[in-house]
Design a protein around this nucleic acid. Sequence first.
DNA 1: CACGTGACATACC
DNA 2: GGGTATGCCACGT
Length: 112
Amino acid sequence: MSDSAINQKVSTILGMVPEGHVVSYGLLADLCGLPGRARLMGKCLTTISAHIAWHRVVRSDGKIAFPPGSDKANEQREKLVLEGVVVKNFKVSMKHYLWQPDLYTVLAKLPY
DNA sequence: CACGTGACATACC
DNA sequence: GGGTATGCCACGT
């Protein structure tokens, strides 16, 4: 699978994550058909972070992936809070996670 | 080719 | 809860 193909899927999927919700890197990888390759997602986001909802991606434990207090971390926290996401100490509450049933809904809309 | 590193995850203790 | 260990994959050195 080419890089651009992955970028395509990531963009598509992130476009379907509703406001006020977040997904983990691992889940995102799963949805891309790349189970176990969460680290690849971070790599991917560095190239397409410009015009998509990259801020809705957090780690599986809820923490923002950037160093707490860094500019990027602050920016992400800001965007999430504006959407109504509860962020405490750079960690989002679990209730905002897109969970399994939601994923099936998302998958049903994907072109593959 | 061998390591180290990184927007990660899981399983333990 | 935190800390360590291991698995994971792409990249640079």
